[in-house]
Structures are given as structure tokens and as C-alpha cells.
Design a protein around this nucleic acid. Structure first.
Lengths: 197, 197
DNA sequence: GTCTATATTTCGATAGAC
DNA sequence: GTCTATCGAAATATAGAC
């Protein structure tokens, strides 16, 4: 059973919240807004989520889940050279997931502060140490040449610049072509001035 | 007289707001927070700014000012080919200003929603049409090959990825080297698979 | 230009009936 | 699982003295 039995209320709340949080921002979206669009009342939401933060947290964890496997694999590699070699392949997987879950990523880039203050929740702290910590120690790795560290950061930024498309400027470009072009651009960032074979 | 006579209250308010808006986010920063750090009271702020939004607006316009000259120059060029040729040079200037005013750019990336809702102010609407409109019509330009449009968007994203450094992973890298590396990476994005001369 | 005091609104959250 | 009703806190903004 792939996506079967429960388009339940809880899931509908998350869908609506994802949309509104991205559109208007987390802080400017009241529980009343969510309840209205869902067709119920504020109080009803509190049956499914104890606090407003928990709605955002749930969505936040789903984004982290996207990068977890790749970063874990990376962290398991023995040395910087091995990690550097694995970059292109893992970035490729990253781009695929980024493209598939654009809406979740957009939620993140549009509400960085709200997410940073998500606070003391245990699940959140644990996840943050795992995922963000792995990314941080990757980019800060002193064993890696600075040029490679910077280019890796640029590559990640380039994925965002190419795929997020906040203004809708690439509405005329098919998704396949867009991701292919982004892949090519990222490849060029990671292969600095490679000498001809 | 370059930057002389008035480190006035108004300017101090903007400085404090810039810091707090970036740190905690626009919505989570109350006028009380600003007033406290400034050493006065909430009401005093209303002498200098009619609404809280106006503080953010003022800072917002300063960011737009950074990109205005370059985008205007670009829009004045006759055809897509001329624009494409001008990209690298203008992106170079863009990187320089980005690096010099990192704090202002950070304000933007951390409060995208608050800024988008800035609303009906005349100055804001006019500026948005000028600056964002120019950027939009640049990236959406149907005369330009899709590959080039996407790579341009990726290049802009790469600048953000390399220079913003939200997590402080490049604290050990001198600013000069960082921007130089970013410049190199961006150049590789814009020079797709260029055949050897 | 800055203060005290307060008006007004809105929001997150709770209590308890159904 | 959803409702009505309401509490309490915090925020923006205003009025008017100094």
C-alpha cells in the first residue's frame, strides 16, 4: 500500500500549514488562518498539535530527512579525499530530492528564523546535531582545501538559485530540463578548471 | 563630506534594527527590544518611524540600491547577446557589493516573507518594479538560451552559498580569499563547458 | 525629542460541553 | 474530534505631558 489509507485531518493540517507558512510566513500565519481554510476552528487544531510550533517542527523534520541519508554516508567515509570523491554523486541525489520536494525546501528558505528558534524539543535537537552538524563539519573540514570547501558551498547555493525559482522565472522550462541544467552547472562548480583529458 | 555629521538617533535605530532583525527575525523583534537596546522607550521610536514596517522598509531599500545600477545598465543594453556578454563583469561588481554589505543581504535572506509583505508603500512598489522587475525580465528573457538563464540563476545562488556563511563555517578563511574563490566558482558556472582555445 | 500611560487588537492556549 | 467561550500575554500604536 503506497500512499493509502489516511488523508486524515492531521495530514490536511500539515498541507495547509506548509502552503500558508511559505506564502505569508510562519509568524504572520495564525492558527485561525489555518483553521479557516481547513473549515474548522482554532481549538480543533489543538487536538492534533499541542503547540503551533509542533506543526512547523513536523514539517521541518521532513526536510531534514531528505538530506540525512546522504550526509550520514558522507560522515562514514574515512578521510577527506574519500569524501571529496563522493561529493558529485551525493550532490546528484541531493538535487533529485530537492527538485521533488521543492515546497518543503521553500518553507525552509522562507522561514529560516522561525525554524532556528524551534527550540528545545528533543527530536529537533537530536536531528539538528545529526544533519546540520554533519553539513557543518563537512564545510568546515580543515583537511579539505579551502577552494573545495568554498566550491561545495557555492554548489549548494547554486542548486537553490536554479531550482527554487521564487519568482517563477522558469515557468516555461520543463522540470526535467531545469534539473538537467542545474546538474550541469553544479558539475562545473565542483570541477574547477579541470585540465582537459 | 563623506559620511560626516549625523550618527543621529534615526541611524542608530536602523543599526540596531538591522542587527536584531537578522538575529531574531523581524516578527520576533518587538519595538520594545529595539528601544531597550537603544536606551529609550517604545514611544520614542514612533517619532522617527510612523510604523514598524517603515524601519524594515528603509533597510530593504538600501539592499535594492546595491543592485540597481548594475541592473539598470543591463536593461539598457540593446539585445540578449549584449546582455549575456556583460554578465560576468556585472556579476563581479555584484559580488563586491555583496561582500561589502553582507549584513544587509543577510537581513534579506533571513526575512524573505516579512519583506515580501512590505506592502503598498509607494517607494517600495516603485523600487520593486525597477529592481526585481529587471532581475525577473533578465532571467525570464526568452531570447536567451535556457541554459544561460539557468546558469545565471545558479551563479547568483552560488554567490549566496559561498559568501553568506550563515553557520560560520568559513570563519578561518580570510575575506579576500573567500571572495576570490567565489569569483572563480561563479566564473566556472557562467562559462559552461567552454571549449579550449 | 523623549517620556508615562493607555487604548486596541490579535494571538496562542485552555476549559469544558457535546 | 470538534465545538463555544474565554483567559492572559504581548504587540502595535496613540494621546498628551514635559
Amino acid at each position: 500500500m503506497p500512499t493509502p489509507p489516511k488523508p486524515s485531518t492531521r495530514e490536511r493540517i500539515l498541507d495547509i500549514a506548509l502552503e500558508l507558512f511559505s506564502e505569508q510566513g510562519y509568524d504572520k500565519t495564525s492558527l485561525r488562518d489555518i483553521a479557516e481554510r481547513l473549515g474548522t476552528t482554532k481549538a480543533a487544531l489543538y487536538y492534533h498539535f499541542a503547540r503551533k510550533e509542533d506543526i512547523l517542527l513536523e514539517l521541518h523534520l521532513r526536510v531534514h530527512e531528505l538530506g540525512r541519508a546522504g550526509l550520514a554516508e558522507l560522515a562514514a567515509l574515512p578521510d577527506a579525499a574519500a569524501r571529496a570523491q563522493a561529493f558529485p554523486r551525493l550532490l546528484d541525489a541531493f538535487i533529485a530530492q530537492f527538485a521533488e520536494h521543492r515546497d518543503l525546501v521553500l518553507l525552509h528558505t522562507r522561514n529560516p528564523n522561525a525554524i532556528r528558534v524551534l527550540g528545545e524539543d528533543e527530536r529537533h535537537l537530536a536531528e539538528n546535531e545529526n544533519v546540520l552538524g554533519a553539513l557543518h563539519s563537512l564545510l568546515a573540514d580543515p583537511e579539505l582545501p579551502v577552494a573545495q570547501r568554498v566550491r561545495l558551498a557555492c554548489a549548494i547555493g547554486a542548486v537553490g538559485g536554479g531550482l527554487l525559482d521564487s519568482g517563477g522565472v522558469f515557468a516555461d522550462v520543463p522540470d526535467d530540463e531545469l534539473t538537467a541544467q542545474v546538474r550541469a552547472a553544479v558539475a562545473d562548480v565542483l570541477a574547477p578548471a579541470r585540465s582537459r583529458d
